[in-house]
Design a protein around this nucleic acid. Structure first.
Lengths: 243, 243
DNA sequence: ATCGCGCAAAGTGTCGACACATTGGAGTGG
DNA sequence: CCACTCCAATGTGTCGACACTTTGCGCGAT
């Protein structure tokens, strides 16, 4: 494999990341783009852990920081609350929400179920050409795994999943899954780099795409769900918990 | 059956209705209670069809109407947008969102999947006493069916479903289902009073509760999903569509 | 009659100010 | 030394005002 392929793989990773993080919110930016920009900034800060759980967010200070008034900041905070990234108690100071293991498990339960649905719909509705697009993503995953690029693998995996959701043909479903995804990226760093994880995951992806090609619903659904649970167990085992 | 039981059945229907409509939003009312009140008022108006799809909502006029400034109204509109009840295009006039049959189908697909998950979790986690609570709801349904009370049946059914979600032990799941429910109530009137629907539905509920009691996962999941689809088909056949 | 231009009316997004609630610490009494 | 009270500092929720955009109507040209 030519080295520039790997380079290309990494090249637009930053852009891919931004795009995938907020794919949930196309059409939700109906509110002012100013508020949306602030929302984006804070959301990234929270999911990357720079703004830790419990951290107080001061609307006045943020207003200064972004050189606007408090009104758009307030809107941004409400958006963040809708995504469960901050808590805004009435008349009290908003703060970054914390995330307990039970909640993580709840989210993964939902994800497993919904990705099962995605696979089911995809088998029934996607054309062979569309399934080929998944094959392309899988190629990127293989390249990342070969290069040991954990970060690249993670985001290309998100891209793979997002493409699956899109191919399900159910836009509502895609939106709700993206919303769940935003939450999940908060504890993503906990599931990093467990030995053997990449290889196993890659093999499952390959089997999944094959199941799609062969229109094997039961197999596709089973693999799809097990992929989600594999992710959960990685987090569960990795560690230290907050509350 | 004594007549006052039926009377009791109908008595707190209004309160039940309000409570179930907004069970999704416990904890989301973090924003000011003023904005939340406006949100509630408008949401009810929209789901009951008094504010038809496409209807423009004027923030200034609403501000006068609720005797506040435009700020809380604006917040309420953003909440409504989050629930997909209104569309707020940037710099353009907000208007009540319209709902196409394809979107209805999408929502029902998600609901079917998630209620399958609810049943799965419920069988694994609920105690016998908790399952008895479902039995009580089912009693109300039976009474409604006997009395031919379609309206009562509908809302007690919502209560039944909501209790199921609660007993799944997954609070995230309950919240997301409630959010979907808010959407669904918009086209609820379309699925009214199809002949034979009540009797079939009632029988399915009975089988569902029995499956719970016997801890029969596969059966429970199957019935749960089929109940959702029965609702969809009723809507599909009932008629006229907007866009 | 039709089309395009331009202007007034209406509405949104943003701002700074203000009233009230909460918070944390200083000061007082036990 | 601790508990309680009170008060200033800090921060939120709401308001009215203003600039800019969109909308829709009239008017003139073709």
């Amino acid at each position: 494999m030519p080295p520039d392929t790997i380079a290309d793989n990494r090249a637009d990773l930053g852009q891919l990341r931004q795009e995938l993080l907020f794919s949930a919110l196309r059409g939700v930016e109906g509110s002012s783009s100013l508020a949306f920009a602030i929302f984006r900034e804070l959301a990234i800060g929270i999911v990357e852990g720079r703004l830790p759980p419990g951290h107080e967010v001061n609307s006045a200070e943020l207003a200064r920081q972004f050189d606007t008034s408090r009104t758009p900041v307030r809107e941004a905070l409400l958006m963040l609350e809708r995504e469960d990234l901050v808590v805004v108690p009435p008349r009290r100071r908003p703060h970054v929400s914390d995330v307990a293991l039970t909640q993580v498990r709840e989210i993964y339960e939902i994800r497993a179920s919904l990705y099962g649905l995605v696979s089911e719909l995809l088998v029934a509705r996607a054309t062979d050409e569309e399934i080929d697009r998944l094959h392309e993503w899988q190629g990127k995953l293989a390249a990342d795994a070969a290069a040991g690029d954990v970060d690249g693998y993670f985001w290309h995996n998100v891209g793979f999943r997002n493409t699956e959701a899109s191919l399900s043909g159910n836009r509502e479903l895609q939106r709700r899954l993206s919303s769940l995804g935003l939450q999940m990226h908060r504890f993503r760093h906990l599931s990093l780099s467990l030995p053997g994880r990449l290889v196993n995951s890659l093999a499952d992806h390959e089997r999944l795409v094959r199941a799609y090609s062969e229109r094997d619903v039961a197999m596709a659904v089973a693999i799809s769900r097990s992929l989600v649970w594999r992710g959960y167990r990685a987090i569960e085992r990795s560690g230290r918990w907050l509350a």
